[in-house]
Design a binder for these strands. Structure first.
Lengths: 340, 340
DNA sequence: GATTTTTTGATTTACGTACATCAAAATTGG
DNA sequence: CCAATTTTGATGTACGTAAATCAAAAAATC
């Protein structure tokens, strides 16, 4: 049986009340006494029973998710997963609120963060826009002891406690190797469709992609990036135009808005052997994978990201350790054979 | 605030004791009264606070893991993950015991299962050997209300509550498509190294592999399967022999014992362009992926499997729902760029 | 209608922790 | 040494549930 506060009190030769004062960092304990208690805690290997403590405190975890107001399948999916988590709130003692901010707008994000610092949630998850102001705001909140995790898009160099998302450089590198290997000895040009180079995850994917292409597949030339703003219409136009170039033998779509890409491919490339790699598994990309329009899909599981963010925020709020391996968000590679 | 037993009692117009009798299916409640309470429970949307209940009961979850006594990296890894879970036991209220049984020995497995039915653990996870006797023993335990999950290797057609492992047919299919696509237009022969065709997961991987090869890559011929018994020495000999055949352009290793495979490849195939796909990420396969001896690794995350099995068994023991998407064990595809 | 049996209520203790109160003891300052 | 202050102990209540006991009420049996 694991030791309880009573055991600590007995071992330290003090009363229950004193143990309680030490455990909950209440004042009125002499230094020597505090040391005695802390020694007993260490020696007996006491760990607070979080379930009992939460019961006694009537504790809930007010959490805030800050998401960009983007109208694409991935963000819709992320939202849906948060709603699922809300349904589990009562069992998990969470109290989850979602705030939408304009996409790619650091100032708006900062103002929301500043507002939250007054509201005292016990944890914040945000899809970070990569800007110095945002970094500063996040660092300030971390210093004020708010648990913070970045979701989907990281804020490197900031003090955030955790990042619940995939390694986008690795994703880009993986895409490049898959494309290169699938194309084999063929020579030609590769079209790259991105959302916006202002978003860190897209930049990183491109960075990884071009690095591996340059190192390992010198026969494949990367064309200038098409920025589709994650909008199906824009993507469609850009890709349809680009396919006028007969030298293109491969396409890497590293953002959202794949609906337009797929339409363009079906209209303009029926007679050509194109190898296509895209990101994010949606109804559209899934269908395209099944009918061979797309050859592979790289994906991040939004459900895992949301659940992981919640687990990590709760653990940080309680000062507990997280199981690192469990919280690592993996890059899923889907071929038509291993779809979920 | 979520309703408590007191609210149920008030709503149903009965005493706390009666609510307790209904909730814990104790006798001495008239049918009509029971109905009243159940209606109140439904109408208020009451769900038992599992944390409080466990505290009151002093409940622990005695769980048993039954593993084959196989001496390969994967089983060692699985064992290590179970030990990690044991370290978390006190926080998770689990009490985990591991039983090793001779590998591929249905009778031994059945006798352990029968013994357990007397011991009353609150959940059992087993790496199933696929045999009718085992299926019958598992079904019997399920009927006796033991929560049971299969781990790594499933027992299809049995009544087990859950399978914590990958879809091995999908894994084989994925391996085939990767190999076929990586080889591109080349024609030649493919060597397949398995552990044993007596194990269901190996059979399924082969089944998926040959199916996709036949459907989609008719220029690639699959050679008779080499059964390496998951033993590095045997695997080494078999592969070294097979590589005498100059027509081999690809290798699929669907079992364990990859150390021998890798040695054989380094000795016999330095001057050849072989495409190699293997299962299970270990120190050896990882190094081989990095130095281009292996082109891709398919993996199942033993840590996820163990944690998932525990979560599911606990949920079943409490009669709670599991988050299906969370418990799905995914097939990891590793290229050298996305290694963890 | 009296007796037995079944059903229900009222109440208590417990789980491990949090938190508050008040009294007692120890320490500090003058 | 006394008074003021700080530190410690003792005790009780609470959280939501489980489980037990005993008395009271209701229903079933004769």
């Amino acid at each position: 049986m694991r030791p309880t506060v009573h055991d600590i009190a007995a071992a330290a030769g003090v009363s229950l009340a004193t143990v309680d004062r030490v455990l909950n960092q209440r004042p009125g304990v002499r230094h020597v006494t505090r040391e005695k208690v802390e020694t007993a805690i260490r020696e007996l290997g006491y760990v607070r029973d979080v379930a009992a403590a939460n019961l006694a405190k009537g504790r809930t975890y007010p959490l805030v998710f800050i998401l960009p107001a983007s109208d694409n399948s991935f963000m819709h999916g992320l939202n849906a997963e948060i709603r699922q988590a809300v349904l589990r709130s009562s069992a998990e003692r969470t109290d989850i609120r979602t705030i939408e901010v304009p996409a790619f707008d650091p100032a708006a994000l900062v103002s929301v963060l500043e507002q939250l610092s007054r509201e005292k949630p016990c944890g914040i998850a945000l899809v970070a826009t990569d800007a110095p102001d945002v970094r500063a705001a996040v660092d300030r909140l971390v210093r004020e002891r708010f648990p913070i995790v970045t979701l989907v898009s990281d804020l490197t160099g900031s003090l955030r406690h955790h990042y619940a998302g995939v390694d986008n450089i690795a994703a880009g590198r993986t895409a490049a190797r898959l494309l290169g290997r699938f194309l084999g000895p063929r020579k030609g040009e590769i079209a790259v469709l991105a959302g916006s180079m202002l978003v860190r995850d897209h930049r990183e994917r491109l960075e990884g992609f071009t690095a591996v292409m340059a190192e390992e597949f010198p026969d494949l030339a990367i064309l200038p990036v098409l920025e589709g703003r994650d909008d199906p219409e824009v993507a469609h136009r850009l890709v349809a135009d680009a396919l006028g170039n007969a030298g293109i033998i491969g396409v890497y779509s590293l953002g959202a808005g794949n609906r337009g890409l797929i339409r363009a491919l079906k209209e303009k490339a029926v007679d050509r052997v194109l190898t296509v790699i895209a990101h994010e598994l949606t109804a559209h990309t899934r269908a395209a994978l099944m009918d061979n329009t797309i050859d592979a899909i790289l994906n991040q599981d939004a459900g895992h990201e949301v659940r992981s963010a919640i687990r990590v925020l709760k653990a940080k709020a309680d000062g507990l350790a997280v199981i690192e391996a469990q919280e690592r968000i993996r890059l899923d590679i889907f071929l038509k054979d291993n779809l979920p």
